[in-house]
Amino acid sequence: MSALLLLSLLLASAGCVALYLASPHQRWRPRPWPRRRAHRVGALLLVGSLIVLSAAMQPVAAVFTVITWAMVMLVLLPLVGVLRVTKPAS
């Protein structure tokens, strides 16, 4: 995996985390992040991810890659949130 691809996926993942933490249903923190600010940060990170990846591949392939990765992250984040809540105390 190229360094640009890795960086792009990290940025996209961080963008999705920001969007998730802005939701009233998020389960990672006691309170959600301020919605507007978190949405802006999330959008910026996703656009940044796309710009980085466009330097490594055809723009249309970069768009599809970021969207695909974002879909996976957005499905996983609520499930991870539930696992954090239901994790048995040691």
Partner: peptide
């Protein structure tokens, strides 16, 4: 075709398609 088969983005997209 590429969107159905996931033939772009290399290994991360292949694993993403596997998960999806």
């Amino acid at each position: 075709f590429a969107l159905h088969f996931g033939t772009y983005g290399g290994a991360p997209v292949a694993w993403a398609y596997f998960g999806l």
